[in-house]
């Protein structure tokens, strides 16, 4: 799919610019600080890159897992046979979302120990419902006349799903995924409490040690990760949304 006109991509340059400014400002500010040995143990390229990479990886893996779960589930819940139970299923899953992510992590830790997997599962549990809800809404808002036209032309149910329902649901589904990913990037700081690393390590270090530069560095990097993911999501939305639809 080729890009369509300038308007389609306008407004996407702002976020990378903000990220660059934040990182540049942080770098200038840190250069003016006298860092002691404790601070230097955290604030060095190796450590920061590793923590950022862990953080990104955790968020992205959780988001992909959410997509892999929510899409088929959402498709199932919008099939004629299951359409009536969809509201009930969403309510039950809503209970899961009411439990704080931190609580889920701790509970999982009691059973499965600490580590990346527990953090990822907690993140998935946290963002599955909103994404699933968007999938159900996205497919549900497809004009029934289009589905009927497709069936009337002799498209199979699968063809109607793949060529009509899913493409037209893409904008709503991707918006849900993107929101979940950005919130996930924030929630992922909690992964530090289950030994899964990430930028939460740096922030907690800063708090525990009373070192403001460490705390600020961790926070700014976390904000930058969220902004970068939001940008990537927006780019994906633009690229994958069907053309010809508003």
């Amino acid at each position: 799919m080729s890009g369509g006109g300038r308007g389609r991509w306008a407004g996407l340059a702002a976020r990378p610019l903000v990220v660059a400014l934040l990182l540049g400002g942080l770098w200038l500010w840190l250069r003016g600080q006298e860092l002691d040995s404790i601070e230097r143990r955290t604030i060095n390229a190796d450590y920061l890159l590793r923590a950022t990479r862990e953080h990104l990886w955790l968020t992205v893996v959780a988001t992909l897992a959410v997509a892999a779960l929510a899409l088929p589930l959402g498709v199932l819940l919008t099939r004629p046979a299951l359409r009536r139970v969809a509201p009930g299923v969403l309510t039950v899953l809503g209970v899961g979302q009411a439990v704080p992510a931190y609580g889920v992590m701790v509970l999982l830790t009691l059973r499965f120990g600490v580590g990346f997997r527990v953090a990822a599962v907690a993140l998935v549990a946290y963002s599955l419902l909103p994404v699933l809800r968007n999938v159900v809404t996205g497919i549900g808002q497809v004009d029934p006349a289009l589905v009927e036209a497709g069936r009337g032309m002799g498209m199979s149910r699968a063809a109607v799903l793949w060529r009509i329902e899913l493409p037209l649901a893409v904008p709503v589904v991707l918006t849900g995924l993107r929101t979940a990913m950005v919130i996930g990037a924030g929630v992922a700081t909690l992964a530090t409490f289950v030994g899964a690393g990430g930028l939460g390590d740096i922030i907690i270090n800063g708090i525990k040690l009373g070192r403001t530069p460490v705390l600020v560095t961790g926070s700014v990097l976390c904000a930058c990760v969220a902004l970068a993911l939001d940008w990537a999501g927006a780019v994906a939305e633009r690229a994958l949304s069907p053309r010809g639809v508003s």
């Binding site: 037209l168 069907p242 010809g244």
Partner: peptide, 23 residues
């Protein structure tokens, strides 16, 4: 098979039913 049958019968509806994401 209804799918095969429908390919032999043209179908026009009030709302046009044109797929908006296709040219």
């Amino acid at each position: 098979d209804p799918n095969r049958l429908r390919r032999r019968i043209g179908y026009v509806i009030q709302q046009t039913g044109l797929l908006p994401h296709l040219t």
